[in-house]
Amino acid sequence: MKGVHTYSEQELVEALKQRDGKAFGYLYDHYSAALNGVIMDILQDEESSIDVLQEVFIKIWKQIEQYDPVRGRLFTWMFNIARNAAIDATRKKEWQNQKRSSSVNDYTSLADRAFNPAEDTGLRKIVQSLKAEHKVLIELSYFQGYTQEEIAEMLKLPLGTVKTRLRAAILQLKKQMS
């Protein structure tokens, strides 16, 4: 009776917009592990990652109307929701722990500390292989969600330098991954 139904991306989005629970189950089965990987990479804590993942899927369900296929793929959209939610969660956690540092040295050492070669997985592991100046930029922008302006301010670098180095870092990262 119960045939395994597969959806094209377009069909999936249509079904989700129609509030189709089965389609949502399919979405969850296909993407939860990948999105959890993105979240875990940022939060580095299984328990809180699961909470964020739950929040992310509920958000996807509630906000699917806002997804616009012209602007990008469904996965890209969900990836952004997941990353933003994870960063919000780190900020909240940091704030609660009163760990927010304010001086340049604190920021850079924070960036260094965030990498743990023994336990790092995913993107963090690859970021490890980058030059220190690139590592810091990826940590602050991708993993901690600071804007380029904020990073320039923290590291006392010109905004232009931050921009170029960040792009170079991304290209290095991409090279390492392929």
């Binding site: 939860s32 592990a33 990987g37 875990m40 993942l53 739950q54 509920i58 890209t76 995913g122 993107l123």
Partner: peptide, 19 residues
């Protein structure tokens, strides 16, 4: 999408129920 799919983190089944 490819990169993210190769760095998955397993999710306990209770999460799906909760969602």
């Amino acid at each position: 999408h490819g990169v993210a799919s190769s760095y998955t983190a397993p999710v306990p089944s209770k999460v799906k129920d909760r969602i």
